[in-house]
Design a protein around this nucleic acid. Structure first.
Lengths: 202, 202
DNA sequence: TCTTGATTTGACCATCTGGTCAAACTCACG
DNA sequence: CGTGAGTTTGACCAGATGGTCAAATCAAGA
């Protein structure tokens, strides 16, 4: 256990390597399906050495989740009250889709956690996420009231965006099994763009 | 190991109890996160007794998955060439949503498997599922050619239906954390109905 | 009732897994 | 260089876990 002073060069390097390896392992096997040994091997450390940097398997997992939650919610944060409503939403959708493409491991990490009842992030969901969603759905409702976008249930609109975009990362095997060699994200971008334009154009 | 004769009354009862318990356990903890002891306890049998009916933990899981795949694909099978295109599709969407509501454990069982790369059903995906989807998307394309529904990428249309409907079962915790006491499925049905009408009306 | 196959179980085993610890080694800095 | 803090590791442990087995119990037909 390194002291609480500023982290040394080696500490920075090793903690980063561990988190990177843990993201790989946890996202493809879930928490229970991953072993400390796997993470140690993948990060090039011995098991006791890994446990010198993190007190437990759970601590690594927790740090990963809380560290990534911010990244995950950033696009929604950026939904801008002053932009053009339809374009703001389409841009949010596009960013979420891009995140599925560029950060599929992160998406699957959360998916694993959620499918199994989110035992470790239940709190963050009903507090941080809930608050952010409430704020942004209020904005959506305002736009609907002003006739700037079509009126639909704002929560379900939000769910639909998450479902449609994260599907490509979370269930990538299935998507690829169906599409074969075709690039999923090319078709997906056009598809969701069309879909939300038709849905939301007043 | 019961012989290969017709199953006795007790065999039927116990195998059913085991599969029911296994569905509970596997769907909420994933394969690796579930223990034989948990399944045994939940089905009211001792561990050795459970292993008298199934040769291994993996065997139970495999039997569950393959037994449920049929149920899972049935609604798509029923998509009828001779019905009204838009109504056929909306009815498919409605049935899938209903399945999320009534069979959430089954949905999460598959979700768990898919998120982790589908190690145990990869074959079924690229064979049975792929074949069925190809058949039905051909039908969709025909309907689009005839101008009966709007033209969109048929594979992505299919993905969107799966994503939107299964989201409510697979990520139920998140949905409930946002919606609070509101019934998810009421709003969902109206929402997806509106969405697909707007998307597909030519 | 008796017999035979089906069912159930307590005791047991090998392996895996998260985690510990003391000893050894390395590094930066005075 | 020498020294003390930071880093690494081999050996080890306890509990969990999937699975086995011989012996005991049960159930149904002759």
């Amino acid at each position: 256990m390194p002291s609480d002073r500023a982290p040394t060069r080696i500490q920075k390097k090793n903690r980063a390597a561990i988190l990177e390896a843990a993201l790989n392992v946890f996202s493809s096997h879930g928490f229970r399906g991953s072993t400390v040994d796997q993470i140690a091997t993948e990060s090039g450390l011995s098991k006791p050495n890994l446990l010198y940097y993190f007190p437990s398997k759970e601590a690594i997992h927790t740090e990963l989740l809380s560290g990534l939650l911010e990244t995950w919610l950033a696009p929604l944060h950026d939904l801008d009250e002053n932009g053009d409503p339809l374009e703001e939403l389409l841009s949010y959708v596009r960013r979420k889709l891009q995140m599925s493409q560029e950060l599929p491991r992160e998406s699957r990490l959360f998916a694993n956690e959620l499918v199994q009842g989110a035992p470790r992030i239940h709190e963050a969901l009903s507090q941080d996420l809930k608050a952010l969603v409430d704020e942004k759905t209020a904005l959506l409702t305002k736009w609907m009231d002003q006739g700037k976008i079509a009126r639909v249930h704002p929560y379900h609109l939000m769910f639909s965006i998450w479902a449609l975009t994260q599907h490509y990362a979370d269930f990538e095997v299935q998507v690829r099994a169906i599409l074969g060699d075709e690039d999923p994200f090319e078709g997906a971008e056009t598809f969701v763009d069309t879909l939300y334009r038709k849905l939301l154009t007043p």
